[in-house]
Amino acid sequence: MGRLLIRRILLGIVVTWVVSMMIFAATELLPGDVCHAVLGQGATEKSLESCRERLQLNQPMHTRYLQWLGRLATGELGTSLANDLQISDQIGARAWNTVRLAALTALIAVPLAVLLGLIAAIRADSSVDRGISIGTLCFISVPEFFTGVLLVYILAVQLRWMPAVANYRDLTRGDFLEVIEALALPIATLTFAVLAHMTRMTRTAVLNVMSSPYIEQAILKGASRSRVIIRHALPNAVAPIVNVIALNLAYLVSGVVVVEAIFRIPGLGTLMVESVIYRDIPTVQAIGMLFCVTYVGFNLIADVMAIIANPRLRHPR
C-alpha cells in the first residue's frame, strides 16, 4: 500500500508540474509576443520595451519558466499589468472571500448530497427517489446564474427577506450573523450547482454496492436494514463517495467564478475574470495555478482516501 500511495502522490506532483507548464505555455501560443497582444496596435516602441522588460521576454523561455515557478513558490508574483499593484497583495485581499464562500458551500453541500444520495439509493424507485432524481436533473441542467437570479428575484426583490446586494468588502470585519446574511444567497446558489451532481453520483455508487451479492447475503442472515447499510454497504461505498466529492469540487471551482460574478463578490473569481478582460496575463496565470493546484490536491486526497479505504490494499495477501 505504501508504494501505491507514494506513486499516487508522485503522480499528483507530476500533474501539477504539467499543469504549470501548460499555464505558462498558454502565453507562448501567441503570434508575436504578449506585450504586443496586450498593448495592441497603438503601443509605442517605448511602452513595448518596458513591458518586455517587466515580463523579461528577452530571456529564453525555459529561464522564464523556471523564474516563474520560483516566483510562484515564494509568493513573489510581481505586479499586475493592469494596475501596477502587487499580484500577491491583490490575491491575498480577495482569497478569503472565495475560500469562505467555497468552504461554507462545501460544508453544507457535501453532507447534504451524501444524505440525499443515500436516501435515494436506499429508497430506490420509490416516489422519494423519483423526486430527488427529477429535482437533481433540473439543477444539473440549469445554469448557476439562473438559480442565482431567481433566488435574488424571489427572496430579495419580491419577498424582501434578504439584501439583494451586500457590501462584501466590509465583510472581513463583519460578525458571523452579518456574514451569513450576506452570503446566504451566494452559498445557496453554489450549493444547488454542486449538490445535484454529487447526489446523483452518490446514489449510483451506493446502488452499485447495494446490488452486490454480499448485501443479499447480509439480508438473508437476518440483518436489519440499518445494519445492512451501515455495516455492509457503507464501508464499501466510502471510496466511490469520496471520489464523487473530489470530482465535484471541479463544479465548485467553476461555480465560484460565476457566483462571484452574479453577486459581485470581490473574490478570486471576479479578479480572474477582470484580469482576463484586461489581458493581465501574470495575474490570470497566478490565479489559474491556484485553482488548479487546489483541484489536483483534492483529487489526490480522494485517491489516497480510496486507497486507504480498500481492504485489499490495507491487508495484502
Partner: peptide, 16 residues
C-alpha cells in the same frame, strides 16, 4: 434458515 450462495467470492463482504 441459512443461505449458501453460488459465488462465495461475491457473497463475502470484502471490507469485513
Amino acid at each position: 434458515a441459512a443461505y449458501v450462495a453460488q459465488s462465495a467470492a461475491a457473497a463475502f463482504n470484502p471490507a469485513i
